[in-house]
Computed example of a mutant assay.
Amino acid sequence: MSVKKRRNSIGQQFIAHRRDMRESPAWRHLPDNARRILDRLELEHMRHGSAENGRLPCTYADFEKAGIRRKSIALAIRQCAGLGFLEVTRQGRRSIAEFRTPSLYRLTYVHGTGRSQAPTDEWQRISTDEHAVAVVAALKAAPSRDLESRGENAPRTVGARTPPAHGRHKGR
């Protein structure tokens, strides 16, 4: 009598979400755009054979293709990090011609590079619904760090003309 051997493996790349994480206050109060950020980074993690967590490159264009408006990306990334699901391991720079440096990310609930590092689960520090709501509200009210560090209230437009110091343009 032959016995069929049962396979207990999945033939494709996947990321498992633990039940305690999915039931956590941090997850419950994660805004939709922040969830899309995590979805896109999980996809990037799988594309890298689940071996590059901490070095996951993702550009604003990649996030836009995932359905997030460009103006909403920075806030969504801050919300993911503030709620403990994401760490920005390298801050990217604006692209100028062929010189591109995308930001690199680490999902805190996924094993680290080469599976040698266990998940750090920073989302567990958000212990109540009130704490999660307060974190999301504070991040939404705070100005973008990029703009704050440059001392500006609005983003610069690449290639925008700076008016002369005396305040008059030629031809007036």
Rank of each mutant, 00 (worst) to 15 (best):
S2R: 10
R6K: 13
R6N: 08
R6L: 13
S9H: 09
S9T: 15
I10G: 08
G11D: 13
G11F: 11
Q12G: 07
Q12E: 08
Q13P: 01
Q13C: 00
Q13S: 14
F14A: 10
F14H: 09
F14Q: 12
A16S: 10
A16G: 02
A16F: 11
A16H: 03
H17W: 10
R18M: 13
R18K: 12
R19T: 08
D20P: 01
M21A: 06
M21R: 12
R22L: 10
R22Y: 04
R22W: 00
E23V: 00
S24P: 00
P25A: 07
P31S: 05
N33W: 05
N33Q: 12
R35C: 02
R36L: 15
I37N: 02
I37P: 03
I37R: 03
L38F: 06
L38D: 00
D39K: 11
D39H: 14
L41Q: 03
E44G: 01
H45E: 11
H48A: 09
A51E: 13
E52D: 13
E52A: 14
N53T: 00
N53S: 05
R55T: 03
R55A: 12
R55V: 05
R55E: 13
P57L: 04
Y60L: 05
D62L: 01
F63Q: 01
F63H: 13
E64I: 07
G67F: 00
I68T: 09
R70E: 06
K71M: 11
I73G: 02
I73C: 05
A74F: 04
I77C: 03
I77L: 09
R78G: 02
R78N: 04
R78W: 02
R78V: 00
Q79T: 14
C80A: 15
C80I: 04
A81V: 07
G82I: 05
G82M: 02
G84F: 04
F85P: 04
F85H: 02
R93T: 07
R94N: 10
A97C: 06
R100M: 07
T101K: 12
L104E: 13
Y105Q: 04
R106Y: 09
R106A: 14
L107M: 08
T108M: 04
T108C: 10
Y109M: 05
V110L: 03
G112D: 06
G112V: 08
G112M: 12
T113Q: 14
R115W: 15
R115C: 09
R115M: 11
S116N: 05
Q117P: 01
Q117M: 14
A118N: 14
A118Q: 15
P119F: 15
D121G: 02
E122A: 15
W123Q: 03
R125E: 14
R125Y: 01
S127D: 08
T128M: 04
D129M: 01
H131M: 09
A132W: 02
A134F: 06
A137D: 14
L139S: 07
K140C: 01
A141E: 14
A141Q: 08
A142E: 15
P143M: 10
D146F: 09
D146G: 13
L147T: 02
E148Q: 15
S149E: 14
S149C: 06
R150L: 11
G151M: 06
G151Q: 07
E152V: 10
A154R: 12
P155M: 00
R156H: 11
R156K: 14
R156W: 08
V158P: 08
V158D: 10
G159E: 02
A160Q: 15
A165Y: 07
G167N: 06
G167H: 11
R168C: 06
H169N: 11
G171N: 04
G171P: 03
R172F: 03
